[in-house]
């Protein structure tokens, strides 16, 4: 059968993946799928919200994909992937029963375990909701330990709203607020139209005692962080998740360097007091 050879080198070498079977595939958007994976070796998989894996498609290649599932579940992992290139498209073409290679988890997580007692603001743009979902799960699982919880979510159109049913469920809860806006209204959309920074201006958090977790396109994260700053949130309480080219995820390949950082090891989550000086430099 298709099990990794149990030789000693495998598992020791960080460049060699573990094999996982695709258990379930859900189509989220026209070009975005969520895959649930279970390890062939049956060993638990543990990660922290905000971490990512390198996913390998046989003969095609490897891509860094953030984990979008629940960190309390160790029997399997979920990834939500948008088809933007050769490997992500090949990944999304796979079917249940197919095997993928997994290396990880890698990277610095969202600091959800360190912010007890604070308000938590999630700011997501497009598929940037996927890397935030494990942190949302974590906060909701420990709901009593936090103050106000708010999600500000911006999508291009109503058809681009990721995890739509879950977003609707969250929106129906009395212990959190969920605001959704779209760049362009289509169909029967009667909600807000505009950029996500407009939602932030509505507030709903204690600026002295709140943390913001921001994920989306780089330009959106910059504007979101500025809007949060204008609302009085200190930069060290704002966290962004950076994206850079990655070939190895362990600091060997050099591709993800961003100033002195290896985004794979020192990130992808950075506090904005560290990120802002780097984001302000052209083509760093």
């Amino acid at each position: 059968m298709n099990v990794l050879a149990p030789n000693r080198t495998v598992g020791q070498d960080p460049m060699v993946p573990r094999s996982f079977v695709i258990e379930r595939v859900r189509k989220e958007l026209s070009d975005t799928y969520t895959m649930d994976l279970v390890p062939r070796d049956g060993l638990p998989f543990r990660f922290e919200p905000g971490q990512f894996n390198m996913l390998y498609v046989f003969g095609v290649g490897e891509v860094p994909i953030s984990i979008s599932g629940d960190s309390k579940v160790t029997a399997g992992i979920s990834h939500t992937t948008r088809s933007v290139g050769k490997v992500s498209a090949a990944l999304n073409a796979l079917q249940p029963g197919d095997v993928v290679g997994v290396r990880g988890p890698y990277g610095a997580p969202w600091p959800v375990a360190d912010v007890h007692g604070m308000d938590v603001v999630f700011v997501a743009g497009g598929v940037g909701l996927a890397p935030l979902r494990p942190a949302i799960y974590w906060v909701l699982a420990h709901r009593a330990e936090f103050g106000n919880v708010a999600i500000f979510y911006g999508a291009r159109t109503p058809e681009d709203i990721l995890f739509r049913r879950e977003v609707q469920q969250w929106r129906g809860r009395f212990d959190m607020t969920v605001h959704v806006t779209v760049d362009r209204a289509t169909g029967a959309w009667s909600g807000k139209v505009g950029v996500v920074t407009q939602l932030i201006k509505g507030g709903g958090f204690d600026r002295h005692n709140a943390v913001a977790l921001v994920c989306g396109p780089e330009v959106m994260m910059r504007y979101a962080a500025e809007a949060l700053g204008e609302r009085g949130m200190p930069k060290q309480n704002i966290h962004v998740s950076m994206e850079r080219n990655m070939k190895c995820a362990v600091g060997f390949c050099g591709h993800c360097q961003w100033g002195a950082n290896f985004v794979c090891k020192d990130g992808p989550v950075f506090s904005y007091d560290r990120a802002e000086p780097l984001l302000s430099i052209w083509e760093l």
């Binding site: 298709n2 050879a5 094999s19 079977v21 197919d98 095997v99 290679g101």
Partner: peptide, 16 residues
């Protein structure tokens, strides 16, 4: 060469 792999059914086996 980091490793090679052979397809087996829906999966593959890796050797180093």
């Amino acid at each position: 060469r980091l490793w090679s792999a052979t397809r087996q059914g829906q999966g593959f086996e890796i050797s180093t």
